[in-house]
């Protein structure tokens, strides 16, 4: 079975008076049901790599494949559709629409995709929020929520269209340790209970150590890629 997301010799150079190399020669295959940490010092290109894996950015060289399909030659429309239907994003800053309630924010990708009927969308959004302990906050706007609650709403929104993979950029970066733990547990549960793949950028090595696989970046290149030994049954 082809990898969920695969980067083949991916290089991204920002054009400019002094061209900046964000990442170079990245080879990385991410399979199903993985819990992967991208670590590295600040400015090493972690976010940049995540944007490339999530089709938000285009590599200057190389190719990103989603389920074996090359994406470089897709037009913007197709890439947008791939993101909408198959990739979930969680950014470091919550990035919710400020004028809409938690429920409406979670419904947004569903409504854009239009696969479910309105009541079904509403129900699914409620269930998602409830499963993250937000049942009492569905009708609050982002400015009425705490940072941790916002980030949980963002995770719920990333899951809206049931993507097989969640890409999270420092999802716990701006949270205190309690909220941070809560969000981490949710991500852990997505992998263990729902069979998702979670790719999370983090510079918290302790958190990274609790994940299943760690990819370390330095100066835009992968310097280490280590997996935990397979602990129990069912893991490949």
């Amino acid at each position: 079975m082809s990898a969920l997301i695969e980067a083949r010799r991916v290089t991204r150079i920002l054009p400019g008076v002094v061209p900046t190399t964000l990442v170079h020669d990245i080879d990385l295959a991410i399979g199903d049901n993985e819990f992967l940490a991208i670590t590295g010092p600040s400015g090493s290109g972690k976010s940049s790599l995540l944007y490339l894996l999530g089709l938000l950015d285009l590599p200057t060289e190389g190719e990103v494949l989603v389920r074996g399909t090359a994406t470089a030659r897709m037009d913007e429309e197709e890439r947008a559709f791939t993101r909408l239907s198959g990739l979930g994003f969680v950014f470091q800053f919550h990035f919710l629409l400020p004028e809409f309630t938690a429920l409406e924010n979670v419904m947004l990708p569903m409504r854009a995709l239009g696969r479910l009927a309105e009541p079904a969308m509403r129900q699914r959004s409620r269930d998602l929020l409830a499963s993250f302990g937000l049942e009492d906050h569905v009708d609050k706007r982002p400015d009425q929520l705490s940072g941790g609650q916002r980030q949980r709403v963002a995770v719920a929104r990333a899951l809206a269209n049931e993507p097989p993979v969640i890409l999270a950029d420092e999802p716990t970066g701006s949270l205190d340790s309690k909220s941070s733990e809560q969000v981490f547990e949710i991500l852990r549960d997505l992998v263990d209970a729902r069979g998702k793949t979670v790719v999370a950028v983090t510079h918290d090595l302790e958190l990274a150590a609790r994940m299943d696989r760690r990819v370390q970046l330095v100066d835009g290149a992968i310097v280490a890629d280590e997996r935990n030994p397979v602990p129990a049954v069912g893991r490949s």
Binding site: E77, L84, L87, F89, L97
Partner: peptide, 13 residues
């Protein structure tokens, strides 16, 4: 910022 959010989620142009 909202436009960036919507587009990153995959809303078509």
């Amino acid at each position: 910022r909202d436009i960036a959010i919507m587009k990153s989620l995959g809303l078509p142009e």
